[in-house]
Design a protein around this nucleic acid. Structure first.
Length: 292
DNA sequence: AGGAAGACCCGGACGC
DNA sequence: TGCGTCCGGGTCTTCC
């Protein structure tokens, strides 16, 4: 599931392959993912230039040359896939194929899920938004975009976000640490996978009350969070699917998880069995020996 | 304020 | 093999 590191990697790819290109056609296979009727969406986007792609939390923001934006959230299983023009040509993707999700999956074996929205770009390349089951692609003006983004908490990867900013956020808070870490209004972009990893690295149980954390533990939490997110970005993030044909970088962080999704397996640090417990309605994975 | 629960959605895993 | 059921995952909303 894409969290901040994966969205950051997507952002980097998009800036390399999509930035500065004009959208010449849009295929909408899943209208529910849009905030407009698909014909309106198509008419508004056709011919627009993608000037920039930025990230905030788990959001990607496409800046268009009409002063509007595309705000995208992948939610649970949304994925992006890119085909450069030579790959598009090889696959002989006709209009008929593009409007048939099943046929597309047959044709593009690596497509990371069912295509929801497809952009054809002026140079013949294509960008696929796949599996937007709960995810979405919203065409917004400056004001509603700002309003949405202002609801988000601090950006953990912002170099101006320092340890004292993090510990200050925790002051006076009463709940359990894991749900707090995952709340995008506190810190943006941290989901289940990285919250589990952060707590493992910091040696703190997911159920610990924030009020019980020492200053040293809060600082350790900050350093663990930032280093894990940075390591994940450096190694390719947590992703089963490729971004494009021949991409062997994406997903490079997959084998590095210590706690997340390892219930019943042995802790790589002390060989205790990793436990699973529901905390705040989500699955927490932890080592009962390493985490206190 | 925090927490629990429900809603959203559907592929995939599971049980029979 | 097929069919039904359930679960997970991020976020928002509502209710206690």
């Amino acid at each position: 599931m894409p969290e901040a590191p994966e969205m950051e990697l997507y952002k980097n790819y998009l800036n390399k392959w999509v930035k500065g290109k004009r959208i010449i056609e849009i295929n909408v296979l899943r209208t529910k993912s849009l905030n407009l009727e698909s014909t309106d969406f198509r008419n508004l986007l056709r011919g627009k230039l993608i000037q920039d792609i930025t990230r905030r939390g788990k959001f990607l923001i496409f800046q268009l040359d009409d002063g509007y934006y595309l705000l995208t959230h992948m939610m649970l299983d949304g994925r992006l896939y890119f085909l450069a023009v030579e790959n598009v040509k090889k696959l002989l993707l006709s209009e008929v194929v593009l409007n048939d999700a099943e046929e597309l999956k047959q044709r593009i074996k690596e497509l990371p899920g069912k295509a929801s929205v497809i952009f054809s770009l002026w140079d013949g390349s294509m960008l696929f938004f796949c599996s937007l089951t709960l995810g979405y692609l919203h065409y917004l003006g400056q004001e509603p975009l700002d309003k949405k983004l202002q609801e988000l908490g601090k950006e953990p990867l912002d170099p101006n976000f320092r340890v004292e900013d993090f510990t200050r956020l925790l002051e006076g808070k009463k709940g359990m640490i894991k749900p707090w870490l995952m709340n995008p209004k506190n810190v943006a972009g941290v989901g289940n996978a990285y919250s589990n990893e952060t707590l493992f690295k910091a040696g703190i149980l997911p159920t610990r009350l924030i009020s019980s954390l020492s200053k040293a533990e809060k600082e350790s939490l900050y350093h663990s969070l930032v280093s894990i997110l940075q390591d994940s970005i450096r190694l390719g993030g947590d992703m089963e699917e490729k971004f494009a044909p021949g991409d062997d970088f994406t997903g490079g962080y997959n084998p590095h998880f210590q706690a997340y999704d390892r219930a019943g397996k042995l802790c790589l640090s002390c060989h205790e069995v990793i436990q699973k417990l529901e905390v705040g309605g989500r699955q927490a994975f932890f080592c009962p020996n390493c985490q206190k």
